[in-house]
């Protein structure tokens, strides 16, 4: 049990002492999760809107595909992205393997279906009277879309938080695509995996605490935005 207590003490030590390895992992985590969340929002919001707002042929099949994508294991995404951005792969020229950008691409693939699905559901659940109200107040198509999106901003916020939580905590993609390079692509989760492999539970717990703290701060700042 000692190592659990030791973990708490170590966590505080690592953060206060400004331990370079810890802080670079923290920054790498924040940068890559934020980047992939933004990318997935950028791609997922319009797709989710289209899926939730319009009725079209094949919509049901798209939803099925999307739901399947929600269950994509991170190691599979990691493998796929690895295969694509390795020098031998189709995107090898870009030299993205073992970079944060590479991880961000993988995590975007991970978060995109989450954002899309939540946005689509939110849009689908828009009060039926909203559109009628907007039309009756004289809104044109563009006004309706803009106002609808603004009306469901809390739902979109929820999508962002969920996506952030997912990419913040995933380890498969970061490990496979990032290569767990110390000071560069080592994220908190891959560092935890490494420390556990080494049998250094205290260090692992310390990093886990840092991760929870980040998640807490993110949720806190979003709930501040949301305050009703």
């Amino acid at each position: 049990m000692d190592f659990i207590v030791a973990g708490f003490i170590k966590a505080i030590e690592l953060l206060i002492s400004g331990d370079r390895a810890t802080w670079t992992a923290v920054w790498a985590t924040i940068k890559v999760s934020t980047g992939s969340m933004l990318l997935s929002l950028g791609a997922g919001l319009p797709c989710g809107f289209v899926l939730g707002y319009f009725d079209f042929k094949g919509k049901k099949h798209l939803r099925t595909i999307l739901d399947t994508m929600l269950a994509l294991p991170t190691v599979f995404i990691g493998l796929a992205v690895y295969a694509f951005i390795s020098r031998q792969g189709p995107l090898g020229e870009l030299g993205l393997l073992f970079t944060l950008t590479g991880i961000a691409i993988g995590q975007t693939i991970l978060a995109f279906p989450i954002v899309t699905a939540i946005t689509a559901t939110t849009i689908e659940n828009i009060d039926h009277d909203l559109k009628l109200t907007l039309v009756s107040l004289g809104a044109g198509r563009r006004n309706i879309i803009a106002t609808c999106l603004w009306e469901v901003r809390y739902g979109i916020l929820a999508a962002a938080v969920t996506a952030y939580g997912r990419v913040l905590t995933e380890v498969g993609i970061s490990m496979m695509v990032g290569g767990n390079i110390k000071y560069h692509t080592r994220t908190i989760t891959t560092a935890i995996a490494l420390e556990t492999n080494k049998g250094l539970f205290a260090d692992g717990i310390a990093l886990g605490l840092v991760l929870i703290m980040i998640a807490f701060i993110v949720n806190l700042s979003l709930s501040f935005l949301r305050k009703q």
Binding site: D129, L130, L132, T133, L137, G138, G140, E151, R153, Y154
Partner: peptide, 30 residues
């Protein structure tokens, strides 16, 4: 005709904004 005819639905939907913004919404569109 969109700008001439207006309907108040049974359960009026208020936009998630202030009263002021709700009332000027139609004017802003115009």
């Amino acid at each position: 005709i969109r700008s001439k005819i207006t309907l108040l639905t049974q359960k009026p939907y208020l936009l998630k904004r202030t009263v002021f913004e709700n009332i000027v919404y139609g004017l802003k569109i115009r």
